[in-house]
């Protein structure tokens, strides 16, 4: 047990994981480039579901190793953070010296967010044709009323708006306006406007998703940023 603790507390372990993870990132980017067709669907499905369905471990092994490296990094971060907090508490300088630990907590939250997203998320793309009612989940239906496209003087799209009516099995929801970067949230599902088409018949492509990891990742990101700025403030002050 002592050996495992020493291993997880060692800075050399952290550096080793960093280097290994960076190698995997470089290898991964080359693997993506070499298998464009295979990876074209990876963002359409939660990661673990995609991995189990794609059945190509000979190509995707580096993702499994990434998960392993991140799990090890998470463990090491927990051990190092706990050890540092205890040490600093004994010295009575906890508040002045915790920014790195705040950042570590943020990283852990982000990892948890990614884990939840990869394992329990839900994503589905649905095309809605004008006037037709389409099932977007077994309990939720959507009807596209109309779309509006704003263009600039050169004919480029500058804004889109889609009027969509949502209804449940037993209840009706109000009309929603979907716009880029302004999703609608219905029954805990995020509804995102992806593209609009005003050709022969009006239609829109929407993404429906539920992402239980997002709040954790968001909290982690905010904690990480706050810790970062605290760290910067304390270091620059001490250097000056």
């Amino acid at each position: 047990m002592k050996k495992i603790t020493a291993f997880l507390l060692s800075l050399n372990t952290v550096f080793g994981i960093f280097l290994f993870f960076m190698f995997l990132l470089i290898f991964g980017s080359l693997s993506l480039a070499g298998n464009l067709a295979l990876f074209s669907g990876v963002d359409e499905t939660p990661l673990f579901k995609w991995l189990s369905e794609s059945g190509t471990i000979r190509v995707t092994w580096w993702i499994y190793l990434m998960v392993l490296a991140l799990a090890l990094l998470a463990l090491s971060t927990i051990f190092c953070t706990a050890e540092a907090l205890l040490r600093k508490a004994r010295r009575g300088a906890l508040l002045a010296m915790i920014p790195p630990q705040v950042m570590h907590a943020g990283v852990l939250f982000i990892m948890l967010g990614h884990l939840l997203t990869a394992s329990t998320g839900y994503r589905k793309d649905v095309t809605l044709e004008q006037g037709e009612t389409t099932s977007i989940t077994p309990e939720l239906f959507a009807t596209l009323d109309s779309i509006e496209i704003t263009t600039d003087k050169n004919g480029y799209d500058t804004d889109w708006t889609a009027k969509v009516r949502f209804s449940g099995m037993q209840e009706a929801f109000s009309m929603r306006l979907l716009k880029p970067v302004e999703p609608a949230i219905i029954n805990g599902l995020g509804i995102y406007l992806r593209t609009v088409s005003s050709g022969t018949g009006q239609s829109v492509l929407i993404r429906v998703c539920r992402d239980p990891g997002a709040p954790w990742a968001l909290a982690g990101g905010l904690i990480l940023s706050a810790g970062g700025f605290l760290l910067l403030w304390s270091r620059l002050r001490s250097l000056n």
Partner: peptide
Amino acid sequence: IWFYSAYGTYWLWTSREL
């Protein structure tokens, strides 16, 4: 945060993200 509010995901498996 921007990407999540625009596309419903905060991570993409692309070379640039990696």
